[in-house]
Design a protein around this nucleic acid. Structure first.
Lengths: 381, 381
DNA sequence: CAGACAAATGGTAGCGCTACCATGAAGGGC
DNA sequence: GCCCTTCATGGTAGCGCTACCATTTGTCTG
């Protein structure tokens, strides 16, 4: 065992020592805060803190508060002159509008709600990055939620998000529970489902067909001459299930499907797990000559296991991944994968939501961004 | 070249077609919305929508509004009887408090502001995951910002976040600009800097010493008998700089430092880049016999490049990574790395912030979570 | 030049909630 | 019994902003 290592500090020290009842904790926290207990607060003259308000700006600029409000939100409706005066006052006072007051008064928050099943999965991280980049110069904030692949958690978060009257909602997937679907339909804002295609979006939809992706990957292996092609998948969420369905369709069409070729687990995907699953797959079916992996982490694990077991890739076993993360190209041998447009998905979702907010919903409510098969060494025999 | 692939759809189709002036876009959007233009809104009787308010609950329960408010926030201060009545009314009406109104009235939003330099970097994703998990059952929302490793962007986001009167701020790193530092000091809420240690935190600090990490990694290579040990680093942010400093300290102490052993680039880190950087390093210094990599992506790239160039690892070249992502353990040969406690960092940061909100700031304002050297095959010669 | 109409600005009245203070009732010490 | 707390509840007055409806001025039509 090489994984011994020495510890710089006692790991016990790293525990947290937190109570379970966060609400109680916070209630206590809030009470203390009110009494000026802990926080580094400056003494505040007025209740809301000493910060300038719209009234301060209005006074300084010699105009009405509402004109300041308009100058900031709809500059076109305020005369050039006043606009300059107001801008000067804003700059001088360092005025920043209070988003809470704004949301309360207008019954609409400048917030995009974003729901993803995982924060660390690179796939969703890329989508989220696209969303952030698209909104970074906009007045919109982003409220993100992690559903942990749980329908119940999604319902809860949707409930919470809805209470804020968001400007739009972006959610991963199309497999919402009936309750979630109802919440989305009644959200009173544009809704974009991402990462899939399907016949019946709640509102708008951006993604691609995982079924076609799975089929394409499998057909590629078949064309390359592989026959005993296995499917290896972890964390079998709905998207993985569809990839599996695509695999199965291609294998059945070729008359090669065999349930013993399929190896899955509900465990969270990881490179290490990819290694273990290949071992399992080979134990069940020693004559395996190809693998379509649920995702690239698994594919990388499979590759490493092949190295370790001295199995030649691509000669003895061909490997195809899914998503085409950067490392697929760098691997040795480089790994064939299905490239998906994750960043673009985020961008497009925001673009569609903004269009809908502006009242011109795209006539095309479903956008299929497709995917690409990237052929590499791992299937070139 | 194997990276040809065929495209399922015209990539040109994937462009966005968005204007540059988001503000103008949104202004238009908002205007349309007000006129009932696009969104799927239900007709609303009152201005704020037809949702139940605290007054509705109070009426139904036969109590004053303020009692409802208290029952929800400080149940202990309301009698058992009324609490039950109120809860029944809340459930029946499906009442959810409006966080905007709450924030406005109390001059304090139940929001944690979180600022990270990257959303896709697994390191920060893990910290963020810890933060999310720690707050998932709390009343706090999370407002995340992506600084893109830019001080200016950080200042801008801090400004925006501050306008919301957050309950706490968590920011990555200790190298804020003077402006950012001032903004943090005046935020009027607990502030936790994460991912580093240092002598002078704004408020609280959770992390570890990247310098010590770099030194430890390098000393390990030295102990294993490597002599011409290179440093390979991409995206040389302040943390990477400190790792480099640790590397340098160890090498100088051993009398082995040579600037030609250091290969860096400001480019964003990736596995592919790791391959290229090793090529560069070997071009400069063909006798290289060890590499300490800035992070695990780079280390993986280095490993793949060694495979491709038929360089034996660990015999000819030893490799050490940084962070100990899952794939380090799965790689063949497995890769020695410095394990960092990213998830725990997020958890601890939240715990400290909550404690501070509650008025009992930990006496220990700086928490060093340390790191571990995980010895593996890549340095076992 | 009246009448109509748009453009520019302002006043008022909330949005839904909580801080602050007031009230009345229930205990507790001498 | 008195005063002094403490506890449970409620009324009132905003928090900072914007929707809605004036009001004023200028411009255009016939």
């Amino acid at each position: 065992m090489l994984d011994n290592g020495w510890c710089m500090r006692d790991p016990k020290q790293i525990e947290l020592g937190l109570g379970d009842d966060w609400n109680a904790d916070f209630r206590f926290a809030a009470k203390c805060w009110r009494r000026g207990g802990g926080a580094v607060t400056k003494p505040r003259s007025r209740r809301g803190g000493g910060r300038p308000t719209i009234a301060d700006v209005a006074r300084k600029a010699g105009v009405g508060a509402i004109t300041v409000s308009r100058a900031l939100r709809e500059p076109g409706r305020v005369s050039e002159d006043l606009r300059r005066q107001i801008q000067a006052a804003v700059d001088e006072l360092g005025y920043v509008p209070d988003p809470n007051a704004r949301a309360l008064a207008s019954a609409r928050a400048e917030v995009f709600g974003v729901l993803v099943p995982s924060l660390t999965n690179n796939v969703f991280a890329e989508v989220v990055r696209g969303i952030y980049d698209s909104l970074s110069d906009s007045p919109f904030r982003i409220q993100m939620g992690n559903t942990h692949y749980s329908g119940l958690e999604e319902e809860r978060l949707l409930q919470v998000f809805g209470s804020q009257r968001p400007a739009a909602l972006i959610v991963a997937g199309i497999d919402q529970t009936p309750v979630s679907r109802k919440l989305l339909e009644n959200a009173g804002c544009p809704v974009v489902q991402v990462m899939e295609t399907g016949p019946d979006p709640v509102d708008m939809l951006v993604g691609f067909s995982h079924l076609d992706g799975g089929r394409t990957a499998t057909e590629h292996l078949l064309e390359a001459g592989y026959r005993k092609i296995g499917f290896i998948g972890a964390r079998m969420d709905p998207r993985s299930q569809r990839r599996l369905a695509g695999y199965r369709a291609a294998m059945e069409k070729a008359g090669l499907f065999d349930p013993r070729l399929v190896t899955t687990t509900p465990l969270l995907s990881s490179v290490t797990l990819g290694r273990e699953l290949l071992r399992d797959a080979l134990a069940k079916m020693p004559s395996l000559d190809g693998v379509f992996c649920n995702n690239d982490d698994i594919a990388l694990g499979v590759l490493f296991e092949c190295h370790r077991a001295a199995i030649d890739v691509p000669k003895t076993i061909g490997i195809v991944g899914f998503n085409d993360l950067d490392m697929m190209q760098a691997a040795f041998p480089s790994i064939t994968s299905i490239r998906t447009h994750r960043y673009e998905t985020g961008r497009r979702a925001v673009a569609m939501a903004l269009a809908a907010i502006a009242g011109n919903r795209p006539e095309q409510r479903t956008v299929d961004l497709g995917f690409e098969l990237i052929r590499r060494e791992s299937t070139a025999r």
